[in-house]
């Protein structure tokens, strides 16, 4: 039974809520995906270091013909906190430098040896550094975790930004509900007066408004969620190709049940919060009127 005339405010509210839920879902998903990607990235690089050994072929012990690289490897083998290490092939190093340096120049550069090391624990890095510095001060260690520190800050900032976006969408959504409810109350002033004279309590009128708001918000939630899911599928395809190469990353596979639960809280919580706000708005308005 449509007691109140709310077609105008329903249309306005429907659009606003669909848009806000859509934006909030995008923000939550981007936040989730970026966190997951960064966590994955960080865990992959946390205990990873690269040792640069300049002039690797230089003989440092003329009697045994031991090169600087040999001596470095000897230290590494003796170091207890190393899980594994790999000496990068010259081709691999050239491939890394290739985009940065011209091929002709590359031929004339004396490339350092690069050793990729996975440590058992990251806090043993200073000991390793000391051991290598004793051999040569030119050898230096590059910690991948430190290398990605600026990126970590960017990720953390992005996460905060997504939280702010969710907060803003919630704020706009709730303000819109209050506005729509007040518009509805003004339009239906006479009907409300008649209902009061028949014996309606404010609670009944508030519940009637809440039912309307729930219907609109339920529909808006479904629309916003469907739109967001469609956008995710498109972005999933685009992101794979654009940033990670085909098959490197699958957004949907990365998201677990807990993340989906948080994600689904948005289209569920907005209507629930909406009916609370609508109810409180109607009751406050009617109390002021009486």
């Amino acid at each position: 039974m449509r007691i109140f005339k709310l077609a105008g405010s329903n249309f306005f509210l429907g659009w606003i809520m669909s848009s806000m839920i859509y934006l909030a879902l995008l923000a939550v998903l981007f936040s989730t995906v970026s966190t997951l990607s960064f966590d994955k990235w960080r865990s992959a690089t946390r205990d990873l270091v690269t040792i640069h050994v300049p002039k690797p072929a230089e003989i440092i012990d003329s009697d045994d013909g031991v090169t600087r690289l040999d001596e470095t490897l000897k230290i590494l083998r003796a170091f207890p906190d190393i899980e594994s290490f790999t000496v990068l092939e010259k081709n691999d190093i050239e491939r890394l430098i290739n985009p940065l340096v011209d091929k002709d120049i590359l031929k004339n550069i004396l490339l350092p040896a690069l050793i990729e090391i996975r440590l058992k624990r990251n806090n043993s890095l200073p000991d390793l550094n000391n051991a290598l510095k004793n051999l040569s001060t030119d050898i230096f260690i590059e910690s991948h975790a430190e290398l990605f520190l600026p990126d970590a800050k960017a990720f953390s900032g992005a996460k905060k930004l997504f939280s702010v976006i969710v907060g803003l969408t919630l704020f706009v959504a709730m303000i819109s509900i209050i506005f729509a409810v007040h518009a509805g109350l003004a339009i239906n002033r006479e009907t409300i007066q008649v209902m009061h004279l028949i014996g309606a309590k404010n609670g009944f009128i508030a519940r009637t408004f809440q039912k309307h708001v729930l219907k609109v918000l339920g529909f808006s939630s479904a629309c916003g969620t469907a739109l967001a899911m469609g956008t995710f599928f498109i972005l999933d395809r685009l992101l794979r190709v654009a940033f990670f190469g085909d098959g490197e990353i699958d957004i949907f596979k990365q998201i677990n049940l807990w993340d989906w639960t948080i994600f689904m809280l948005v289209p569920v919580s907005y209507p629930l919060l909406g009916i609370i706000v609508a109810g409180v708005s109607v009751l406050t308005f009617l109390r002021k009127q009486n």
């Binding site: 449509r2 007691i3 005339k5 028949i198 014996g199």
Partner: peptide, 23 residues
């Protein structure tokens, strides 16, 4: 808060009917 309960014991026919036109 008690007014609605008292009004429920009355029926009112208004001069201008006051019917709800969208019902």
């Amino acid at each position: 808060k008690e007014i609605p309960e008292i009004r429920r014991r009355m029926g009112i026919v208004f001069q201008d009917f006051r019917l709800i036109n969208n019902l």
